[in-house]
Computed example of a mutant assay.
Amino acid sequence: MRKEALADIPLLSSPGELFEAELPRFSRVGEECRPLTGLFHSYLLRGSFPQTALLESTPMAQKLLREDIVDKVLKRDICSMFGVRRLKELEQTFLYFCQHDGGMLDIPTRCNNLDVNKKTVLNFMMLLESAHLI
């Protein structure tokens, strides 16, 4: 079913093309894409990684994503590359960003919640950005 549904995506050279289109074309593309909404939600729930897309079960895909990112990237790669010693706080900071995406970041509140200073939180943010996790 997914392959058939993907074949129905309207052809656009870029998302910008859609926003430059006149209202009737914009509306028509929106209507044509409406049946794909469920697939898009699944894509977001699965973390948009190829490994998770291949799994049928969304909970299994999310588990794999958590294990791969948290265990491999946070606990192993970032710690060894940057010498992070406060792993628990780094992981909590990452999870905070995962749960509060797109909103305003209140650094003093985040520092109080983690019981770490501003410099540490800003350093964690820089590490997570350099690892392309946020």
Rank of each mutant, 00 (worst) to 15 (best):
R110F: 15
F82M: 09
I69C: 10
N112Y: 14
L74I: 04
I69S: 08
R110Y: 12
K75G: 00
L90F: 04
D71I: 02
L39M: 06
I9N: 00
E31L: 06
A5L: 07
L133E: 09
S27W: 00
M1D: 09
D101M: 12
L23I: 09
S42C: 09
S27Q: 08
E129S: 14
I9S: 01
R86Y: 09
G83I: 00
R28E: 10
Q99I: 11
P59E: 12
Y96G: 12
E89C: 08
E56W: 02
M126V: 13
E91F: 06
P59D: 13
K88D: 07
L39A: 03
L12Q: 02
V73N: 05
E31H: 06
H41R: 14
Q62R: 13
D101R: 13
L45S: 11
L44K: 13
G47R: 12
H100A: 11
K88W: 04
F97V: 09
Q62I: 08
E31R: 06
L128G: 09
K88E: 07
R85Q: 05
F19Y: 03
L6I: 04
R46F: 10
Y96Q: 12
E4Q: 03
S27I: 10
V29R: 00
S57L: 05
L55T: 05
C79G: 05
I107A: 13
C79T: 04
P50Q: 01
S42A: 10
L55P: 06
E56K: 10
D68W: 07
